[in-house]
Amino acid sequence: MKARAFRYVRPATIAEAFDAFAEAGGEASYLAGGHSLAPALALRLQAPDVLIDIAHIGALRGIVLDGDSLRIGALTRHAEALTDPHIAAHAPLLRMAAPHVAHPAIRNRGTLGGSVALADPAAEFPAVMLAMGAEMEIAGPDGHRRVPAEAFFLDLYQTALEPGELLVAFHVPIARPSHRWAFDEFARRRGDYAVIGAGVMLDMDGPTVAEARIAFLSAAATPVRARQAESCLAGRLLDAGAIADAQQALAGDLDPPDDEQTPAAMRLHLGRVLLGRLLGGLIDNAAVAA
C-alpha cells in the first residue's frame, strides 16, 4: 500500500497554488489535511502527478466575525470546531457535530475545507453546512465567488468547485437567540461514518416553529436538506403531531443508499427515529426558553 510517485509543491499564496495547478496540466491535487487523500493515494485509487500542499496559505486560515456572519477559513482544523469560542457562540451546530467526526488525532489535522470539498455524503461537516445555511467562498484564477451550500453539493463526491478552484472559507449566518440547534447520528462504532445523521436548526417564535432547516448525512448521494419535513414544521407548534408529520415526510426527502449491511429501508427508518429524537429534545428546550 504505497502511493505512486508524485511531485510535491508548497505554495505560499493562492495565486502560487493556481500557477502550480496550471503548470501540472490538470494532473494535480490540492492537499490540505490530506486525511482522505492520503489513503486514496496509498490504495492507488488516485495518482496525481503533483500534490499542491495548500496548508501554508495564510488566506485560507482564520475564524472572524464579519457582521452577521462568521467567516471560517477552509484550513480550520476539525479540532478547532471543538475549541474555538466564535464557533461555539455563533455556529453551535459545528461544535455539536465535531465530536462525531472520526477520532481525536484525525481531528487534529483534518480540515473543514477538505471535508466539505470532498463532499462525502456520510461526513458530518457538509451536512452541517447545509443546515446552517452557509455560503462557500471559492477562489479561481478569475477571482472569488460565493455559492450557497444548497448549490454546492451536486452529486456523489461532486461539488460546484471547478477543476483548479480552491475552497477558501465558509460564511455562516450567526446563531440568533430564537434559534434551536441539534445534531446527532447513529454510528456502529464511535467515530465511524454514520449509518444516518442529521443537523437541525429551528427558528422559534415562542412555542411555534417559524422556520426549520434540517440536513441529513448518509441519506442520499449528497448531504441533503429534508425540505418536506421542514415544511411540516414551519408555522406549527412544535409538538408530537408536528414531529410525526415531519418523520413521515422524510420518505420524500431521503434517497438513501442500499446495501446488505444497511438497507435503504433501515436508513429511512433510522432517519425518522433520529429526527423524532432531535425534535423531541428541542420541545423541552423551546418550553424552557418560553
Binding site: V195, T262, A265
Partner: peptide, 13 residues
C-alpha cells in the same frame, strides 16, 4: 447481530 438484522427481527424494517 447487526442493527439491520435486529431491526428485521423486530419487524421494524
Amino acid at each position: 447481530m447487526t442493527p439491520a438484522r435486529l431491526l428485521r427481527a423486530l419487524g421494524r424494517i
